[in-house]
Amino acid sequence: MDRESPLEALGIGFRLWQLGVEASIVIGLRSWKIASGGSGAGAEASRMVSEKWLALVDANTRLLTGSYGSSPHSVADALLRLYGGKVRANRRRLTRR
């Protein structure tokens, strides 16, 4: 296994920080939607739970089959792409008018 360069690790760390910030925004948006009640609140709560389970199953399946590669960098990169895409999609959906 090759060692990754410090710049690669720094890049992964920065992307992880970005994902954390964006996930915090989505948590706030979802909390606001659920707290405001109405028909959309229950649908959002249900969607949130099912999305989390599906993402967990997807990530674990890919990890167990080795489709993310074997290096820590390739696994981290793939997981950041998977979860980052889902978080971005939720942010766009929740901020749309």
Rank of each mutant, 00 (worst) to 15 (best):
A35S: 10
W53E: 03
G37N: 04
R30P: 01
K33C: 10
N60Q: 13
L29T: 00
R47I: 01
A23T: 00
E51L: 02
S24W: 13
V49T: 07
M48Q: 04
A23M: 00
R47Y: 12
D58E: 15
L56P: 00
I25V: 05
G28M: 02
S50E: 15
V21Q: 14
S39R: 12
L54A: 10
A43L: 08
E44C: 06
A43P: 05
E22C: 01
D58K: 14
G20S: 05
W53C: 02
S39Y: 14
A59T: 04
A35P: 12
R30I: 01
S46T: 02
S31W: 15
K52Y: 00
G28K: 06
W32Y: 14
V49E: 06
I25L: 07
G38P: 04
I27T: 01
E51S: 00
G37T: 11
S36T: 09
L56Y: 03
V57C: 05
A43E: 14
Y68W: 15
L29C: 00
S24Y: 10
N60T: 09
W53L: 10
V26Y: 00
G66H: 02
A45Q: 13
R30H: 05
S31D: 14
A55P: 01
G40T: 08
V21E: 14
I25Y: 04
T61A: 12
G20T: 01
V57K: 06
G42K: 08
S39K: 13
G42W: 08
S39H: 13
V26E: 03
K33S: 11
L54G: 06
S39P: 12
I25P: 00
S70C: 06
T61K: 07
L29G: 00
L56G: 04
G66T: 01
L63H: 06
L54K: 15
W32P: 02
